[in-house]
Simulated scan of single mutants.
Amino acid sequence: MGKVLNYINESFEELKSNVSWTPWSEVQRYTIIVAVFSVVFALATWGVDEMFAKSIATLFNWINS
C-alpha cells in the first residue's frame, strides 16, 4: 500500500512542478472554438443526412410508381 501512496504523491508533485499548464484565458478560447466547431460539424452532418434521406425517399417513390 505504501508503494501506491508514494506513486500518487510523486505523481501530484510532478504535476505541480514539472508540467507547464496552459493559461486559463487560452483554455477558455480553445474551448469556445471547439464548441463552435462541434455545433457547425453536427449541423453539417445533419444537413447531409437529411439530403440523403430525401434523395433515397424520392428514388424509392420513383421506383414504386
Results as ranks from 00 to 15, higher is better:
11 S>Q: 12
49 D>R: 12
24 W>A: 15
26 E>Y: 02
32 I>R: 00
5 L>V: 14
17 S>W: 04
47 G>M: 07
24 W>G: 01
31 T>D: 01
39 V>A: 09
9 N>M: 10
53 A>E: 13
24 W>Y: 13
22 T>H: 00
40 V>N: 01
50 E>I: 13
27 V>I: 14
42 A>M: 07
12 F>M: 10
17 S>M: 07
9 N>I: 09
39 V>T: 05
13 E>L: 12
25 S>H: 05
49 D>Y: 14
39 V>F: 07
30 Y>C: 01
4 V>S: 08
28 Q>P: 02
12 F>Y: 13
48 V>F: 12
31 T>M: 06
23 P>M: 02
19 V>A: 04
3 K>W: 09
36 V>G: 01
35 A>L: 08
43 L>P: 01
8 I>H: 04
45 T>A: 12
41 F>W: 09
36 V>E: 12
28 Q>R: 08
9 N>K: 14
29 R>V: 05
49 D>C: 09
32 I>C: 02
23 P>I: 02
16 K>Q: 10
10 E>P: 00
5 L>P: 06
35 A>T: 01
54 K>D: 03
48 V>W: 11
6 N>R: 10
33 I>R: 07
13 E>C: 07
38 S>G: 14
16 K>C: 06
6 N>Y: 10
30 Y>Q: 08
35 A>H: 06
48 V>T: 07
57 A>N: 07
52 F>R: 11
47 G>T: 05
38 S>T: 12
12 F>W: 10
7 Y>V: 11
45 T>Y: 12
4 V>F: 12
13 E>F: 03
56 I>C: 00
44 A>R: 02
6 N>A: 09
16 K>S: 09
46 W>D: 05
27 V>A: 04
11 S>M: 13
48 V>I: 14
17 S>Y: 09
11 S>L: 15
30 Y>W: 02
5 L>A: 09
54 K>I: 15
27 V>G: 00
46 W>R: 05
56 I>N: 06
38 S>V: 04
23 P>L: 03
29 R>C: 01
8 I>G: 02
47 G>P: 02
42 A>E: 03
12 F>A: 03
17 S>V: 11
53 A>D: 08
27 V>S: 01
18 N>H: 05
29 R>P: 00
18 N>R: 07
25 S>I: 03
30 Y>F: 04
14 E>A: 05
54 K>E: 04
33 I>V: 13
56 I>F: 10
19 V>Q: 04
28 Q>N: 06
40 V>E: 05
31 T>H: 05
55 S>I: 07
51 M>C: 09
7 Y>P: 06
20 S>W: 00
49 D>F: 15
5 L>I: 11
27 V>M: 04
44 A>Q: 05
51 M>W: 15
43 L>F: 11
56 I>Y: 08
51 M>V: 13
17 S>F: 07
